[in-house]
Amino acid sequence: MKPFEIVEGPIDIQKYADYVLHASAGAVTIFTGNVREWTHGVRTLYLSYEAYVPMAEKKMAEIGAEMEEKWPGIKVAIVHRIGELHISDIAVLIAVSSPHRQAAYAANEYAIERIKEVVPIWKKEIWEDGEEWIGAQKKYPTKGRKLND
């Protein structure tokens, strides 16, 4: 594994928890973003994620570096899955270890916000009656929902 990676298969939580854990870590926070079936009354059948893989991994590593600068002593792993994902599959996982718990929570939440801003990954939602690429642009206001908003 790489600490900042795009993968095409299922994400194993334990693998990333093990990676960030070390003898000086007193706290580990793990966030997973999972495919949700119902969003505002609309049923998702599945999602399809696409990435500009080398740039996405580079941007995730940059986010990790930002985090380690803001919260010294933490250790970070970020992984995002692409391809076709079904209900409850993990799309993204962020693992952070820290000597103390406050930094582990704060850094983890910072990571998901930054991922949603700068990492070149795109999600297409497939519903029973259609599909659409999700993004922040004004053209998609009626169905422009996000996975973990």
């Binding site: 500009y52 995002h80 949603k116 990954i121």
Partner: peptide, 10 residues
């Protein structure tokens, strides 16, 4: 180069 439409990862 790459065209980057609004991202929606996460």
């Amino acid at each position: 180069c790459a065209f980057i439409p609004p991202v929606s990862g996460g």
